[in-house]
Design a binder for these strands. Sequence first.
DNA 1: GTCTATACTCTGATAGAC
DNA 2: GTCTATCAGAGTATAGAC
Lengths: 203, 203
Amino acid sequence: MLKPRTRIQERNFKAILEAGLDIFSQQGFRGATLDQIAEAAGLSKPNLLYYFPSKDAVYFALLDGLLETWLDPLRHMNPKGDPIAEILGYVRRKLELSRDFPRESRLFANEILQGAPRMLATIEGPLKALVDEKAVVLQRWMAEGRIAPLPPAHLIFSIWALTQHYADFEVQVRGVLGPGHDPYAEAMDFLTQLFRSLLNPAN
Amino acid sequence: MLKPRTRIQERNFKAILEAGLDIFSQQGFRGATLDQIAEAAGLSKPNLLYYFPSKDAVYFALLDGLLETWLDPLRHMNPKGDPIAEILGYVRRKLELSRDFPRESRLFANEILQGAPRMLATIEGPLKALVDEKAVVLQRWMAEGRIAPLPPAHLIFSIWALTQHYADFEVQVRGVLGPGHDPYAEAMDFLTQLFRSLLNPAN
DNA sequence: GTCTATACTCTGATAGAC
DNA sequence: GTCTATCAGAGTATAGAC
């Protein structure tokens, strides 16, 4: 993969990644074609392949660039903060990611749906490690009676599932709600209420 | 599409649908190839096309056959039953669907992720109608103070998101949990607790 | 750096022998 | 009913002119 040096290269490089995100997130890896990506980027197909040596290279570049952004909110959960506030903050940031970066969410969803052929190592490595680390924090909060006792990994799964649903199944959400709704604003209130009652140690 | 008449036709017909489910659910519509499906079904490609006139025909046959099964648990929610028991029963049946038919769940997920090009009418028609109908029931239960007041559509979304996550993101769930777990059994307990606390009218 | 032309492979679908 | 052979089109990637 080329390292961009000039201003034109910089611009084309970004245009390709932007177009790739558009197409890959909607069609999956195999469904996307270089023709579509090149056209969306405003380049010829050979020119696209001047910047990236292959279709795979574009896809990998997208996956790599995204992972950090995606894991960041969980990393950000502070073991020394107030448990409820920290978890609700995580939910909020994760939902904002779904709202502001739905294509990125769908790109991941496609990859996982297909059995994560290109990300299994990441899932079983860094992702599992991060979840395990945060599970310890959650369990301490539970042991101290500051939040209700729950299986920590499944608590994290529930946050992922509920927030990503609004990006990954956006078509369905909007179709079922009909016009005149703001799905993400409504989701924010609903999820706050959901996790408040779930985490309440009195339950 | 051929109507199966002999025993052999019956068997091949089912083999094709079974193989199609395998491949389409993993690769999405565009990613799947007739070669893959034919091989998985133990037939030659031309022979497959003797039973179904096109790739689309196989895909549509799968979508059609599934919709009923998928909507059934929600239909089954009884307006005259006990609210908490009815909703928890719905959660349980939906989770059992994810456990017993994960490929079907992923087939739908793929379709929705790609913008539901072949199912938008169904979503905005029958599916929306069913959700609207059940939303009325849920709102009555809320008005009567038998469950906590919540946006009904989002309550239903949360059931879909939380149960389907275990099928659609199974690779991730298993990868993060590591060996020695029974994701669905754990999910059943967790989701029961989650919806009990969420629906509790005292909250 | 970018384009035209093209090589080569894969894929959906058809023809026709048996 | 099933197979071999094959077509037309789309797809990834490369060569080479400018």
